[in-house]
Design a protein around this nucleic acid. Structure first.
Lengths: 276, 276
DNA sequence: TCTAGTTGTTCTGTTATACAGAACTTCATT
DNA sequence: AATGAAGTTCTGTATAACAGAACAACTAGA
């Protein structure tokens, strides 16, 4: 499915290290129930003894936790990763300042609010505040999401140079997720222009059926979009949604964060600097 | 300072893998500003070229992100770690159920609420809800904390067999953190007995000067303590704290979680099952 | 209780790999 | 320009990582 077996992507890649990281990724996929040595060996394509050595090393450093259940062992992600993940998230300076605004946005809209950045062309959520209610968004912090069919992704794409957009899209493509997904580059470019103009993006069932997201970009001092804010809701839970009003709300909150870090609001950016 | 250079803790440890993990840990320490190749090489005790190879591998897998600033590069933790950390945390089943109660506890007390488990004898926070206010607790999710001088740690120690406590303490020791830290095993055992009896623990400046924590254990079906809840506050911010009342509040919230997962309340446990 | 079939763990020889150091390349600063 | 300090590439060699097989621990079935 995923291209796990990259044949030495870079020539300075260390095989055993790469395999150890593969183990972590594999455990991240099947984290719920834990995995056995044999399953891990199978998953990353090495012998049992090699998988065993990798696991021993990972355990010794706290990256993997093991629990014996009878004769068999279950391996799962260790707590050190919680720490590193927390550090990596707080690393991204914006998440500190944005957190209170995320709360406000959630309370203003009653929807789950998320903060995301662009990482290697993908949209990656780095913080979230859940709306109250039965339906919770799956735990998806830090996961790479397709940029062309998510509100945060489109808001970020709308504010970077066209040629970079083209490069990213040619690399990632525009995979179809639902029958509303924009799969034509020209159509997407059109949508991005609209987003850049009005200051908010809409993902209406383009990524997941029944799910609506509205996003807006956050600008740093230079006017570049470095992050995006979004709200997510199940359309079932909301009768009629006034998109223009919701868009303005999200944009206003994004503007607030932009100003906190010394950047321009969307309106100011449209007035002054070129879109470049 | 820390024992990073463990000389092949287990004999099945892979050197390059261990070094790669050391890189991640090192980046986790100095995450704010990022590190250069030379700094990393220095930190983990390898040559520049080796550090370079390790970093290339980590980057190829998204575990490390790099940003060039002029001729120099800054390496920092990558977003994949945010994902793995999120998975590792949600792995621990309790964190799902406990989250709403953490919110309630924070609102009931106005203090930062945390959920922690025992990992290799150390207390490790896996979730938290911050209190509003200027002073925020440092981002400390997933970090190993000394069990003998934290509220969550003591609550957990109070409900495991004495011999295991002895084993853990002999391994970890009772390092002094402040002049109120309990450093005598006998004194700690005494405190643990009290905690088991009344159902809540108090850390009054035993770990950090000026900081007060109150914790209570969460019990699973079998009656074993699998996690602990706590509130943390700066004593400066609160005039007088009624410990008995606060302790009862924390205990009540912990009991609620215990019941949600089919376990006994503290009162029920004291009545029925032996302390074993 | 014995047997068969799991699992995880240890051992071993060989190959390929990870390593340090030196050479080379960018940049920034004087 | 020239110096220095970073990152990057190259290369030979020691050794570490690997697969496979043997072994041990445990489970389930007869």
């Amino acid at each position: 499915m995923t291209d796990t077996n990259q044949p030495a992507n870079d020539k300075y890649s260390l095989r055993s290290v790469g395999r150890a990281l593969d183990v972590l990724v594999a455990l991240g996929r099947d984290n719920a129930k834990g995995m056995t040595v044999a399953e891990i060996a199978e998953a990353i394509g090495v012998s049992k003894s090699t998988a065993f050595s990798l696991l021993q090393t990972l355990i010794a450093h706290g990256f993997v936790a093991d629990s014996r259940i009878g004769g068999s062992r279950q391996y799962r992600l260790g707590t050190v990763l919680i720490h590193l993940g927390d550090q990596a998230a707080s690393n991204i300076a914006i998440s500190q300042t944005a957190m209170p605004v995320l709360h406000q946005l959630m309370e203003a809209t009653g929807m789950t609010a998320r903060l995301a950045i662009l990482d290697e062309g993908y949209a990656v959520a780095i913080a979230r505040v859940d709306a109250p209610g039965i339906f919770k968004l799956a735990p998806s912090l830090g996961r790479r999401e397709l940029p062309h069919c998510s509100a945060v992704g489109k808001s970020l794409l709308a504010h970077i140079p066209q040629e970079r957009v083209a490069t990213l899209l040619s690399r990632i493509g525009l995979p179809r997720r639902t029958d509303r997904t924009i799969t034509e580059p020209a159509k997407l470019i059109e949508d991005l222009a609209l987003i850049a103009w009005r200051g908010y993006s809409v993902d209406d069932e383009e990524d997941n059926i029944g799910v609506l997201c509205v996003g807006a970009a956050i600008y740093e001092r230079g006017g570049e979009a470095i992050a995006a804010l979004s709200v997510t809701t199940l359309k079932l839970e909301r009768g009629d949604i006034e998109l223009a009003k919701l868009g303005a709300t999200v944009r206003a909150h994004a503007d607030r964060i932009s100003q906190m870090i010394g950047g321009p609001t969307h309106a100011a950016l449209k007035q002054g600097g070129g879109s470049r």
